[in-house]
């Protein structure tokens, strides 16, 4: 079995288990949906579709799980010897998790910043730090493509489109 096939199988295994767990959790939550008196005689209630969907989710993820395990076993028994003989050069994908985690943290900060610092400061910081995180070091870009752009955007929103952007709550606290 080649490396991509093996990778695909483990991906399917993880995926099916995740969906199975999610469907089970969803099914449990579906049973907690409140029902009105007499709902048991109704052909369709608020629970009907969620319960049907959770059943489908469980069945489909089990099908994927069984299919994956079956393929895996068949291929393992056939090629186990071959694999031992051949030196498998697993090429690890070169993922940049560090930058992605920084961007996600930045987005979360942006949500907090919008509430406490207001649109202009939060967005300027978001853009400038975003450029920096992605490797931009030119000051002209870091500052030139953040604050002026944000001011222009803010002007268009508040003055041209008449959209009210509340100032940050921090400024309310400070008086």
């Amino acid at each position: 079995m080649s490396t991509p096939q093996r990778k695909s199988l483990s991906e399917d295994l993880i995926g099916s288990l995740l969906f199975l767990a999610f469907s089970a959790g969803y099914a449990y939550s579906a049973t907690l949906i409140p029902a009105y008196p007499g709902d048991e005689y109704e052909p369709f209630t608020a629970q009907t579709l969620p319960l049907a969907l959770s059943t489908m989710g469980v069945v489909l993820s089990l099908l994927l799980l069984v299919g994956t395990l079956k393929t895996r076993n068949a291929q393992n028994s056939e090629q186990a010897l071959q694999q031992r003989a051949t030196c498998m050069t697993d090429v690890k994908p070169d993922y940049d998790w560090k930058t992605v985690l920084q961007l996600i943290a930045l987005m979360l900060f942006y949500a907090v910043g919008l509430k406490w610092l207001g649109f202009i400061i939060a967005t300027t910081v978001f853009l400038a730090v975003g450029y920096w995180v992605l490797g931009e070091r030119r000051k002209k870009i870091l500052f030139g493509a953040s604050l002026p752009f944000v001011l222009l955007f803010w002007f268009a929103l508040t003055q041209l489109l008449d959209i009210y952007l509340a100032p940050g709550q921090l400024f309310h606290l400070l008086g």
Binding site: F22, S23, Y26, I33, Y36, A46, P50, L53
Partner: peptide
Amino acid sequence: TVLGLMISTIGTDRSSGVERF
């Protein structure tokens, strides 16, 4: 597709007014 349908059930049920998920 099933996951998409599941996400669509989050919120107040339009018919009964019951909160779901």
